[in-house]
Nucleic acid binder design. Structure first.
Lengths: 357, 357
DNA sequence: CGCTGTGGATGAAAGGTTTCAAGAGCGTTC
DNA sequence: GAACGCTCTTGAAACCTTTCATCCACAGCG
């Protein structure tokens, strides 16, 4: 779905200087006239070395352009100062907000965060998990595509703590931090039912993603609670949770004859909802008069949409922060107990369902 | 600007199993009844080891749950299979699109990408640069906050190739891939001038960011070209390039008496523009009748906004892909020459300036 | 004057992998 | 039947840092 136009760029060339060679602890020690161990002490326990020697060593490091080799450090010391968040979709502002929370907590603990993006691709997810395990990162935060993956369950037993983010998992291997998606689905559909809608579309997919399933189940439950038949929920399965797929769904929806077309749509996330909204509006449907729309996540752009979007809000940053804190606890506290933390979502009603009052 | 509500979560606890211990090449060799070297060969040059031995070794690896220690590998082999993209703001969809292009190119070359987020914070940027250098990543792609940073210029001479993304830099140290921001600014303002606007606001900041400066300079140049005084450009400086700051600017703008208020605003990016738009609309200004708005980047959400946004489009993914390709060339091709690639932006006109036709 | 304590520096070992020259086993060829 | 080639395997060195027990010099003290 790239909008890149292959504009012909101008290029300008320059020669490059010869390849350099790195200086190690040994070189620094020689330059400063001290031993290897002393240089290491300056690096790791500066307080035990006398100010004079320390100054000499630091001068030598500066003049040689010494850069500590983290591989060697980690190999010997055995520990990494890095935490990874493997995101489901970096293009979804929801996850970048979660990431913000993760970074916040990590920074407070003096760790750095590497972000990885699986783009809803199972193979990429697997490749990143392997890579991160091999890197011996301090821990992995992940919003998984398939939370039952064997690979995922094996990691903690091999020494890499894993915290599942935005999915509740009830197994003995990891902590998880989630928002009650079933409840979120119920909130959305109850709202639509209260407004008098009968035929409601559920737009989401693929059905391997836990969030998609739970939100649909919540939708169904709301119908049951209200004593409506499940056939009132028309499912439109998408290939991914993106704006483009949302547009596709909009196309399909708008193509239905008016008497069979749902009067409302509940989308598994805001990206789908925004795409759906855009497409429907451009095809001449009025929102919410012809079609009411509810999204999910309440991303920043939901409020600024063509028709401000009713959405199910989740505590995004808090989600990330909490997950990171659990991970940190797991990797530092010997008495750590795995936890399953569940937050409660909240419906934010805007024009896309309520109309202008 | 978090919308997190500190909803009280439910927590459930579980005991965790005892700590495991990792198996190395040595253990695998022993289990398979072969030598160290052979295990290493299975890992790195499977074709040279006989199918039988290979099978034995692989069985041993599986049963021991062997995970290669990447630190040790890298220490010995000297090379990393990782590429990093240090983003200016992971919350801006523009940069995640660029990242997508980077990932694409990296995957094609069999490398993995770690994303890092400086969040427009100089200290975080510096910390990540140090970290990545110590990690000996294969190369760094960066959209810098301050492109004249000494740290940035020192990296390549110490062996870590750096490509600057979305900034043109004319020095001998790195390649850069950029879009002509001055031209982009000109396009935006020329368009507004053609529509008859006289007093135009430029919304952007902080002024340490190159993109902000260039786009403003382009704006000024367009005024000069049209023979208008520079005082027609009213600068509203923001603290960051975010939706929230855009709302703040909207507040300031809407607060001006109508006869002194600009009739159009050009924002340094779409996030600002969307915030501005939202705030102005909610304060009762009509867009584009009372205030025309032009954004920059043409992110996916620009088209779906309350009033579809006129914006300056850049080839986002292509930018990332090209940058990654330059980096790969630099780290693998001994005859590499640094290049400065510049793409051309394009104005996309929508309702926020043109009105509904 | 000899002993102890102390702040600081030292040197060697260790950590897990890759590399590479050398070796082992075995079938072919003359 | 000896020499050769071939395929596969081996063992040890090397990568760079951290750690820790040891050592040194010197001050204070009895």
């Amino acid at each position: 779905m790239s909008v890149d136009d292959e504009a012909l760029p101008e290029r300008s060339r320059r020669r490059r200087p010869p390849k350099p060679h790195a200086a190690g602890v040994k070189a620094v020690a020689a330059a400063a006239g001290v031993s290897l161990g002393t240089v290491s002490n300056v690096l790791n326990r500066p307080e035990v070395v006398s100010p004079l020697t320390r100054a000499k060593v630091e001068a030598a490091m500066a003049s040689l352009g010494f850069v500590r080799n983290e591989s060697a450090r980690q190999l010997r010391a055995g520990s990494s100062r890095i935490l990874a968040y493997l995101m489901l979709d970096a293009g979804n502002p929801f996850f970048t907000d979660v990431a913000k929370g993760v970074e916040e907590a990590a920074q407070a603990a003096g760790l750095s965060v590497f972000l990885c993006n699986s783009s809803e691709d199972v193979d990429r997810e697997a490749a990143y998990l392997d890579l991160l395990e091999q890197q011996r990162v301090q821990g992995i935060l992940i919003t998984p595509i398939d939370q039952n993956s064997a690979r995922l369950r094996k990691l903690p037993s091999r020494g890499t703590p894993v915290v599942v983010v935005d999915r509740a998992i009830d197994d003995a291997e990891h902590c998880s931090v989630a928002v009650n998606d079933v409840l979120g689905g119920e909130l959305a559909i109850s709202h639509l039912l209260e407004l008098g809608h009968e035929r409601i579309a559920y737009v989401g997919g693929p059905n391997t993603i836990g969030q998609v399933i739970d939100r649909r189940d919540g939708a169904r439950r709301a119908l049951q609670t209200a004593g409506k038949p499940l056939t009132n929920l028309i499912e439109l399965t998408t290939g991914a949770l993106t704006v483009a797929e949302g547009r596709g769904a909009g196309q399909r929806l708008a193509g239905l004859p008016a008497d069979r077309r749902p009067t409302a749509a509940f989308c598994a996330n805001d990206l789908l909802a925004l795409g759906l909204l855009q497409q429907c509006v451009s095809l001449g449907l009025r929102v919410p008069e012809d079609l009411a729309i509810v999204g999910y996540d309440d991303i920043e752009f939901a409020e600024a949409a063509a028709v401000p979007l009713t959405s199910v809000r989740q505590p995004r940053q808090l989600l990330g922060r909490t997950a990171a804190e659990l991970l940190l606890d797991e990797s530092s506290n010997p008495d750590h107990e795995h936890q399953r933390v569940t937050f409660t979502p909240e419906l934010v009603v805007r024009t896309s369902t309520r109309g202008t009052l």
